[in-house]
Design a protein around this nucleic acid. Structure first.
Lengths: 168, 168
DNA sequence: TTAAACTTTCAATAATTATTGAAAGTTTAA
DNA sequence: TTAAACTTTCAATAATTATTGAAAGTTTAA
């Protein structure tokens, strides 16, 4: 199998998975392509390989940079910019989790806060049920936060890793 | 604030969050509505409250049942079926994780397996880089599995919870 | 059986989201 | 300065995904 074919297949699959998780297909593809290449690529390289338009590649790369998944690289003697993906996979996952937390967890927390404060008018049983739901969701999100702490530890704490394993 | 308004707002927000995570908006809305209601609701109830068509509500409820997030309820003396959401939030999260694992993790594993076996032809450095990527992703997925183990423990192991906390 | 009550399916359509690519903007070298 | 090299923007359009609702299917009670 040719390396370039392997790269393409990887980019394709990554794209499909990504779009199942609400990440734009071409953003995921570009990310995969940069992950798969040791050398930094230019916008033009990416356009050609993945058959995407300039605008698309340009804005998706910028978005990937926002997510801290991709870095700019300056090559001496070259005008245009090149890009590489963060190769530390655990760090990558960390960044994705952080970004999504910021984007999606915060609105939920705001809503829960509002609903907790509200003085709800309605049938007693139903009000109780709803209040419990809000409380449970709040606890749930707290646990998510705890879990992301563990995740951070797993990344670089070998002892902790072993501990987890031994408890399984 | 009227309880019914709180419910609607909750359903709306849940729908928005859901769709950011690749879950169809109306599926998430229906789920939220059922979560918010103590009493089981009929297809008709949901249609009316969320202003959705019969077909939409019907198939999304079936999908929610597939995900084990919603249960059928038979009311005596009633022909039609009623539905409630699983109220155990941790169990709910568990089910969501499991379902997505099945749907999206498995295809990645299959791809990685294939790429690991492949005899890649190409420039040495680049091949090495790519092989490392495949290996790293494999390890990463292993860790995700471990994490889901921890998640299971967090759900009902108070001691373990404390342990984690004490290490923070 | 039958017919009313209810559920499911699925082709047509609407709504949303991603993509294009030309034009405008910016940077650099000379 | 200028003009070539490069990047960014954004309105138009394409592609995808969700939704509708009527028709077909199924179940139940009598």
């Amino acid at each position: 199998m040719k390396l370039s074919d392997a790269k393409m297949e990887f980019a394709q699959t990554w794209g499909t998975i990504g779009s199942a998780w609400g990440i734009p297909r071409s953003m995921a593809q570009i990310h995969a392509l940069l992950l798969a290449n040791k050398e930094a690529l230019s916008t033009e390289d990416v356009m050609e390989t993945l058959q995407l338009s300039r605008g698309n590649v340009n804005s998706n790369i910028r978005e990937l940079i926002n997510w801290k998944l991709v870095n700019k690289v300056h090559k001496i003697g070259e005008r245009r910019e090149f890009f590489t993906a963060q190769t530390d996979i655990m760090g990558m996952a960390q960044n994705i989790v952080q970004e999504r937390k910021k984007r999606e967890l915060e609105p939920v927390l705001a809503l829960l806060e509002e609903l907790k404060k509200a003085n709800l008018k309605g049938e007693k049983d139903e009000v109780e049920h709803f209040k419990k739901l809000v409380k449970d969701l709040d606890e749930f999100i707290l646990q998510l936060d705890q879990l992301s702490e563990i995740w951070l530890r797993l990344k670089d704490n070998f002892f902790f890793k072993k501990l987890i394993k031994s408890m399984s």
